[in-house]
Amino acid sequence: MGFFDFLLWMLWIYLVVICIWIFVWIFIDIFRDHTLNGWAKALWIIFLVVLPFLGAIIYLIARGGSMAQRQARDAQAAAQANADYIRSVAGTPTSSPAGEIERAQGRLSSGAITQSEFDALKTKALAG
């Protein structure tokens, strides 16, 4: 086996891996798409199994644009969920002394703390 035979085998292996990746990505997109009903999903799957390359090309032409939109929407939703989770875990940042005194005043008004605890919180907030 010569060097060019080796390169040809590498090319074929690369093409097979790419084809498998495309088929897997199309199958994932078919099952994630909420606009397709069950029969349409079944027909696409049958079409991809019977005529895989033709089915993949037709799917990418017919539904490729919406495939990208669904992927972008899912990525945006995941980023938003991640940001919401980080905000919920991080809590409220340390605010100005006036904000801390205002929160302490609210707790005093609700009866959660006593006047002496309010005075201690106020002194602590003004001290920095």
Rank of each mutant, 00 (worst) to 15 (best):
I45S: 13
P97M: 10
D5E: 13
E100Q: 08
F31N: 11
Q115A: 03
A83Y: 05
L54S: 09
I57W: 08
A68F: 14
I61G: 09
D33Q: 02
P52D: 02
A83N: 03
L54N: 04
A75D: 15
Q115D: 03
G55T: 12
F4N: 12
Q76K: 08
D29P: 05
P52F: 05
W9R: 15
L48A: 14
A81D: 01
P52A: 06
I13A: 13
T35H: 13
F4T: 09
G2W: 02
I58S: 11
G128I: 14
S116Q: 15
G2V: 02
Q71R: 01
T94N: 06
R87N: 03
F31Y: 12
Q76F: 08
I58Q: 10
A104H: 01
A78L: 02
R32F: 07
S95Q: 14
I18F: 05
Q71T: 03
V24E: 01
F27I: 12
A90G: 00
I26C: 04
T94P: 03
T94F: 07
D119Y: 09
F6E: 12
A120S: 10
W25A: 14
K124H: 11
V49H: 06
A83V: 07
S66M: 13
L7R: 15
G55N: 13
K122H: 01
W39F: 14
G55W: 10
I18R: 05
Q115M: 05
G111V: 05
A90E: 04
G65L: 03
S110V: 04
L126I: 13
I22E: 08
D33R: 01
G55Y: 11
G99N: 12
N37D: 12
Y14W: 14
A42E: 08
E100S: 01
F47A: 15
Y59E: 06
A112W: 13
L11K: 10
G106M: 10
A90N: 06
Y14C: 15
Q105I: 00
Y85R: 06
R103P: 00
A81F: 00
C19T: 11
